[in-house]
Simulated scan of single mutants.
Amino acid sequence: MTGVGRAVAANHPVKERVGFGLAKVCKAHRGNVAGLLAEFGLHVGQEMVLIELWQNDGLRGGELACRLGVEPPTVTKMLRRLEGMGLIERRPDPADARSFRVYLTGPGRALEEPVLGCWERAEEKTFAGLDPAERREFGRLLAKVRSGLGSIRD
Protein backbone atom coordinates (compact mmCIF):
# COMPACT_ATOMS: atom_id res chain seq x y z
CA MET A 1 0.00 0.00 0.00
CA THR A 2 1.32 3.46 -0.78
CA GLY A 3 1.81 6.21 1.80
CA VAL A 4 -1.39 7.86 0.58
CA GLY A 5 -3.29 4.57 0.93
CA ARG A 6 -2.14 4.20 4.54
CA ALA A 7 -3.26 7.73 5.40
CA VAL A 8 -6.69 7.12 3.91
CA ALA A 9 -7.04 3.81 5.79
CA ALA A 10 -6.04 5.44 9.10
CA ASN A 11 -8.79 8.05 8.70
CA HIS A 12 -11.49 5.76 7.34
CA PRO A 13 -14.98 7.07 8.17
CA VAL A 14 -16.04 3.79 9.78
CA LYS A 15 -13.47 4.45 12.51
CA GLU A 16 -15.45 7.54 13.45
CA ARG A 17 -18.56 5.48 14.23
CA VAL A 18 -19.64 4.78 17.80
CA GLY A 19 -20.14 1.12 16.89
CA PHE A 20 -16.52 0.83 15.79
CA GLY A 21 -15.40 2.21 19.15
CA LEU A 22 -17.76 -0.16 20.94
CA ALA A 23 -16.32 -3.11 19.02
CA LYS A 24 -12.80 -2.09 20.03
CA VAL A 25 -13.81 -1.71 23.68
CA CYS A 26 -15.58 -5.09 23.62
CA LYS A 27 -12.51 -6.77 22.14
CA ALA A 28 -10.21 -5.25 24.78
CA HIS A 29 -12.61 -6.12 27.61
CA ARG A 30 -12.97 -9.67 26.30
CA GLY A 31 -9.17 -9.96 26.24
CA ASN A 32 -8.96 -8.78 29.85
CA VAL A 33 -11.59 -11.31 30.91
CA ALA A 34 -9.83 -14.06 28.93
CA GLY A 35 -6.55 -13.45 30.72
CA LEU A 36 -8.21 -13.62 34.12
CA LEU A 37 -10.31 -16.72 33.32
CA ALA A 38 -7.23 -18.53 32.02
CA GLU A 39 -6.03 -18.72 35.64
CA PHE A 40 -8.86 -21.21 36.16
CA GLY A 41 -8.44 -23.05 32.86
CA LEU A 42 -11.52 -21.42 31.31
CA HIS A 43 -11.94 -19.80 27.90
CA VAL A 44 -14.15 -16.75 27.38
CA GLY A 45 -17.71 -17.93 26.86
CA GLN A 46 -17.38 -21.03 28.99
CA GLU A 47 -18.05 -18.98 32.10
CA MET A 48 -21.33 -17.85 30.52
CA VAL A 49 -22.55 -21.46 30.59
CA LEU A 50 -21.51 -21.73 34.22
CA ILE A 51 -23.24 -18.44 35.09
CA GLU A 52 -26.51 -19.74 33.64
CA LEU A 53 -26.16 -22.96 35.62
CA TRP A 54 -25.26 -21.13 38.85
CA GLN A 55 -28.57 -19.34 38.43
CA ASN A 56 -30.58 -22.34 37.27
CA ASP A 57 -28.88 -25.74 37.48
CA GLY A 58 -30.33 -28.50 35.33
CA LEU A 59 -31.13 -26.54 32.17
CA ARG A 60 -31.68 -28.35 28.88
CA GLY A 61 -29.03 -27.92 26.20
CA GLY A 62 -31.49 -26.03 23.99
CA GLU A 63 -32.39 -23.69 26.85
CA LEU A 64 -28.71 -22.90 27.32
CA ALA A 65 -28.31 -22.13 23.61
CA CYS A 66 -31.29 -19.78 23.75
CA ARG A 67 -30.10 -18.03 26.92
CA LEU A 68 -26.60 -17.58 25.50
CA GLY A 69 -27.83 -16.47 22.09
CA VAL A 70 -25.80 -19.13 20.25
CA GLU A 71 -26.60 -22.10 18.04
CA PRO A 72 -27.11 -25.53 19.67
CA PRO A 73 -23.94 -27.02 18.09
CA THR A 74 -21.91 -24.24 19.74
CA VAL A 75 -23.38 -25.11 23.13
CA THR A 76 -22.75 -28.81 22.54
CA LYS A 77 -19.07 -28.12 21.87
CA MET A 78 -18.80 -25.93 24.98
CA LEU A 79 -20.54 -28.54 27.11
CA ARG A 80 -18.20 -31.28 25.89
CA ARG A 81 -15.22 -29.21 26.95
CA LEU A 82 -16.70 -28.27 30.33
CA GLU A 83 -17.66 -31.89 30.90
CA GLY A 84 -14.11 -32.96 30.04
CA MET A 85 -12.85 -30.50 32.65
CA GLY A 86 -15.16 -32.07 35.24
CA LEU A 87 -17.19 -28.87 35.74
CA ILE A 88 -20.56 -30.07 34.45
CA GLU A 89 -22.34 -33.30 33.67
CA ARG A 90 -25.06 -34.05 31.16
CA ARG A 91 -27.90 -36.36 32.19
CA PRO A 92 -30.86 -37.59 30.19
CA ASP A 93 -34.00 -35.52 30.69
CA PRO A 94 -36.48 -37.81 32.47
CA ALA A 95 -39.40 -35.99 30.79
CA ASP A 96 -37.98 -36.14 27.24
CA ALA A 97 -35.74 -38.98 26.10
CA ARG A 98 -34.51 -36.92 23.14
CA SER A 99 -33.13 -34.24 25.42
CA PHE A 100 -30.57 -33.87 28.19
CA ARG A 101 -30.12 -31.61 31.17
CA VAL A 102 -26.88 -30.00 32.29
CA TYR A 103 -25.82 -29.99 35.94
CA LEU A 104 -22.89 -28.46 37.75
CA THR A 105 -20.43 -30.70 39.54
CA GLY A 106 -18.78 -29.74 42.82
CA PRO A 107 -15.77 -28.23 41.02
CA GLY A 108 -18.13 -26.32 38.72
CA ARG A 109 -19.99 -24.85 41.70
CA ALA A 110 -16.68 -23.98 43.38
CA LEU A 111 -15.71 -21.70 40.48
CA GLU A 112 -18.57 -19.26 41.10
CA GLU A 113 -16.71 -16.93 43.47
CA PRO A 114 -13.41 -16.99 41.55
CA VAL A 115 -15.16 -16.26 38.23
CA LEU A 116 -17.15 -13.46 39.85
CA GLY A 117 -13.82 -12.05 41.03
CA CYS A 118 -12.44 -12.21 37.48
CA TRP A 119 -15.38 -10.22 36.19
CA GLU A 120 -15.05 -7.66 38.99
CA ARG A 121 -11.34 -7.16 38.27
CA ALA A 122 -11.96 -6.89 34.52
CA GLU A 123 -14.72 -4.35 35.11
CA GLU A 124 -12.48 -2.26 37.33
CA LYS A 125 -9.76 -2.23 34.68
CA THR A 126 -12.17 -1.50 31.82
CA PHE A 127 -13.98 1.35 33.60
CA ALA A 128 -11.12 2.78 35.67
CA GLY A 129 -11.40 6.10 33.82
CA LEU A 130 -15.08 6.60 34.69
CA ASP A 131 -16.45 7.89 37.97
CA PRO A 132 -19.41 6.05 39.58
CA ALA A 133 -22.02 8.34 37.99
CA GLU A 134 -20.47 7.87 34.54
CA ARG A 135 -20.45 4.09 35.04
CA ARG A 136 -24.14 4.12 35.92
CA GLU A 137 -24.96 6.30 32.90
CA PHE A 138 -22.87 4.10 30.61
CA GLY A 139 -24.68 1.02 31.95
CA ARG A 140 -28.04 2.72 31.38
CA LEU A 141 -27.08 3.61 27.81
CA LEU A 142 -25.82 0.09 27.09
CA ALA A 143 -29.10 -1.36 28.37
CA LYS A 144 -31.00 1.01 26.09
CA VAL A 145 -28.89 0.03 23.06
CA ARG A 146 -29.23 -3.63 23.95
CA SER A 147 -33.01 -3.43 24.22
CA GLY A 148 -33.08 -1.83 20.78
CA LEU A 149 -31.31 -4.85 19.34
CA GLY A 150 -34.24 -7.10 20.15
CA SER A 151 -33.88 -10.79 20.85
CA ILE A 152 -30.78 -10.75 23.05
CA ARG A 153 -31.46 -12.48 26.37
CA ASP A 154 -30.00 -11.69 29.78
Rank of each mutant, 00 (worst) to 15 (best):
P94Y: 11
A65H: 06
R101E: 04
M78T: 04
E123W: 07
F100M: 11
R109F: 00
K125I: 12
L87V: 04
T105Y: 06
R91D: 05
K77C: 07
P107D: 03
P72R: 08
R90N: 10
L59T: 01
D93Q: 14
M85K: 15
F100K: 14
L87A: 01
G106R: 10
P73H: 08
R81A: 12
V115W: 05
T105S: 10
N56R: 15
L79W: 05
A65R: 03
M78I: 05
L68T: 11
L79R: 07
P94F: 02
M85E: 13
P72T: 04
A65Q: 06
E83A: 14
R80W: 11
P73A: 09
G61Q: 15
T74E: 09
D57L: 04
R98P: 00
G117F: 02
E124Q: 09
G108T: 07
G58Q: 02
I88L: 15
G117D: 11
D96G: 05
V115R: 04
A122D: 03
L104D: 04
D57K: 05
R91L: 13
E112D: 00
F100H: 15
G117W: 01
C66S: 14
E83K: 07
L59H: 02
S99G: 02
M78V: 03
K125R: 14
E63N: 07
L82C: 01
R67H: 11
Y103A: 06
L116C: 12
G62F: 09
K125F: 12
M78P: 00
R90P: 07
V115T: 10
R98G: 03
L59M: 13
M85C: 08
S99C: 08
G61C: 14
D93S: 13
E89Y: 05
A97W: 04
R67Y: 08
V75I: 13
T105I: 01
L116A: 15
S99H: 10
F100A: 15
L111D: 02
P92Y: 02
T74K: 06
V70E: 03
W119G: 00
G61I: 10
R98C: 01
M78K: 05
E123N: 09
G61R: 15
G62E: 15
R121E: 09
E83F: 01
G106V: 05
Y103C: 10
E120W: 02
Y103D: 03
A97P: 07
G62H: 11
E89R: 13
R121M: 06
W119C: 00
Y103W: 15
P107E: 05
E113V: 10
D96I: 06
G84A: 05
R109P: 00
E123A: 12
G84D: 10
R81C: 08
A110Q: 14
A122S: 11
R101L: 14
R91K: 15
Y103T: 07
R90V: 06
S99K: 12
D96E: 11
L82N: 03
A97S: 14
R90E: 11
C66R: 12
M78L: 15
E89H: 09
N56M: 09
G62A: 15
M85I: 05
V102T: 14
G58A: 06
E120M: 07
D57R: 02
L68E: 06
C66A: 14
T105Q: 02
L87D: 02
G86I: 09
E89V: 07
D96W: 07
K77D: 08
E71L: 13
N56L: 12
V75N: 01
E123T: 11
R80V: 12
T76A: 15
E83G: 14
G108E: 02
